[in-house]
Computed example of a mutant assay.
Amino acid sequence: MAIRPSARWRARADEEATELAAGTRAPSDAFLSELFPESLLAATDAALHEFELDVEALRDQDDEKAFEAIKRVILVLNGINEDHDGAGYETQEREELCLYIDHALAEHGIDVPALVARRGISRTEITDDWRDW
Rank of each mutant, 00 (worst) to 15 (best):
E93S: 06
R119T: 05
E34A: 15
L35T: 03
I101Q: 00
V76I: 10
A7V: 15
L35R: 11
G86M: 05
P37S: 06
G86F: 00
H84N: 15
Q61G: 04
V112Y: 11
E64I: 15
A22I: 14
E82F: 04
F51V: 08
G79F: 11
D60T: 11
E34D: 12
A43D: 05
I110R: 05
A87F: 15
E95K: 08
L40Y: 01
E93C: 06
A7G: 08
I80H: 03
A46G: 05
I3Y: 05
A106L: 09
A13N: 04
T91D: 00
D54G: 07
A30R: 00
A69P: 01
I74C: 13
P27Y: 10
V112T: 05
A2F: 03
I80F: 06
A17E: 04
W133M: 07
H84D: 07
D60H: 10
D45G: 11
W130P: 01
S33T: 08
Q61T: 04
P5R: 02
E90I: 10
A117D: 11
V116I: 12
S28G: 09
P5I: 03
W130T: 10
P113I: 15
A11E: 11
R94P: 10
P27D: 12
A57E: 14
A30L: 02
K71D: 15
A2M: 02
R118P: 02
D128E: 12
P5H: 14
E82L: 01
V73C: 09
I110K: 01
A2R: 05
E38H: 08
T124V: 14
L58N: 05
C98R: 04
E50C: 12
Y89S: 05
P37Y: 09
D60M: 14
A47P: 02
I101H: 01
E93I: 03
A2D: 07
D132P: 06
A66V: 09
D128V: 13
L40F: 02
E34W: 08
T44R: 05
R94Y: 09
A26I: 06
E34M: 10
I110S: 00
P27L: 12
T91E: 02
F51E: 02
A57Y: 10
A22Y: 04
L99Y: 06
D29M: 09
G79C: 09
A57M: 15
E56L: 07
D111P: 01
E19R: 04
D45K: 00
P27F: 11
A69K: 03
N78Q: 04
I101N: 01
Y100A: 04
L53A: 13
